[in-house]
Design a binder for these strands. Structure first.
Lengths: 242, 242
DNA sequence: TAGGACTTTCTTGGTCCAACAAATAAGAAC
DNA sequence: GTTCTTATTTGTTGGACCAAGAAAGTCCTA
């Protein structure tokens, strides 16, 4: 039953594919061919070992990949069950905030926010109420006070969340929640405490004024400018090769 | 979910964090504190074992997670290098088309599309040009011809891509490209060739007509209905298995 | 006897260890 | 400069043990 030590791999798949990748593929096939649905159970790790003739560590690494992709949910003693959290995972990719914000990430995220915030202008004016304006002004007023960078960016973020909350769309708020870490980093880039207290505060106030005046063009122009103003802090970076 | 990814999930998860999650977090901290950039090398697996007091398997499983998220690229003998392939990984996420589309994925994806397509109505009318209408009509006309399911869904998808292309936002087009495999599956769910030729064609035509008439309310209502009409094909799913 | 509470056993994922294979960068030998 | 050797590092394997929880068995009481 055990693999032949030092022997020919034999049934190994196409050259160049790792054993872990092969197991991932085989589990995918298993899911597809067995027509497993969300909530169904996968065989135990040890069963999969026997079924795919792989060691348990290999199966476990494959399972980690599937788990990272949001396709299975594995709990001790319970085993692996099929799930489908791909959409959540996709957004979480942008919440992974270990390294310096890259120019590309800045561009992607801000373009997306621009789509939401600037692109929904007409919805804003449809739903806008006085209390929205009051809240925005109050939050922004706090920005003018003396905070450290982290606090200031949190307030900046809260301002934008309050803004999009006018849209009353939970999906949007969810997206903002998962992207919060990246957005915070973007907000801090190139700024000081004073920048928040002066420039950012002023830009926000201009946006609120445009909202209050129901001046859609001004609202869109000012908000778009506000979102893109940090672009100057990101220098071109070389394309690394694999 | 994603105990290893969420920075501060805030959820009442089990107090005990797994060793693998801990190592993932420590590697993240290492990247952040060392200010590692794309292309830089991580310490070897064995170094990380010593550094974090973890076994090699634990470190390897942690590395698999980081690799799955497109944050590191590890090659034999070379070691792990920092990368940023999050977009690519997102694409692979949605290429995992092994299982039946779940109700949750349908709901997530269509709600998101609704946000983009319905929520940007006012931008559509701002930018709309005659050639946009002509292209949309032409694409939709093709849908009325006799195609197989795959071809029909491709045309359906092309229609919506052409629609959002009016927004002239590359980020949105990128998102649609990434989600294409899932969107195609959603479009095919519960449909036949004839459904595409009749119902889908008709719904599209109604949307185009509303665009041409610059009737924003009709545009939003019809488009939203069109996106959500497939919902009836997804039944509630239960949690446990047989 | 029936039924519930307690105990034991077994299953299963989580972690660790030790070894070897394979790939390849780096140095040695020519 | 080319080729060979060596050393290092990831890839894979099999085995071991633990902790948590489910399942099964046991025992006590009404």
């Amino acid at each position: 039953m055990s693999a032949e030590l030092g022997g020919e791999p034999g049934k190994a798949g196409p050259a160049g594919e790792s054993a872990v990748d092969a197991v991932v593929q085989q589990i995918r096939n298993l899911i597809a061919s067995s027509k497993l649905k969300v909530g169904d159970h996968l065989p135990t790790e040890r069963d999969l070992c026997a079924q795919f003739n792989a060691s348990r560590n290999t199966v476990r690494e494959a399972m980690r990949i599937l788990k990272a992709y949001g396709l299975v949910d594995v709990r001790p003693k319970i085993g692996a069950t099929i799930t489908d959290n791909r959409m959540t995972r996709a957004f979480e990719l942008f919440s992974f905030n270990t390294m310096e914000i890259s120019r590309k990430t800045f561009s992607d995220v801000q373009a997306f926010r621009s789509l939401i915030e600037v692109g929904s202008a007409d919805l804003f004016f449809d739903r806008l109420r006085q209390e929205d304006l009051d809240d925005l002004s109050e939050i922004n007023a706090s920005l003018a006070e003396n905070h450290d960078l982290n606090e200031a960016s949190e307030i900046d973020f809260a301002f934008h969340v309050r803004l999009v909350s006018i849209l009353d769309n939970h999906a949007v708020l969810d997206v903002y929640a998962v992207m919060k870490p990246v957005i915070l980093r973007i907000m801090q880039k190139g700024k000081t405490r004073r920048t928040f207290m002066t420039e950012t505060f002023s830009e926000h106030q201009d946006v609120v004024d445009a909202l209050a005046a129901r001046d859609r063009l001004a609202f869109q122009y000012r908000l778009r400018s506000h979102l893109m103003i940090g672009f100057r802090f990101f220098s071109e970076e070389m394309e690394e090769s694999a």
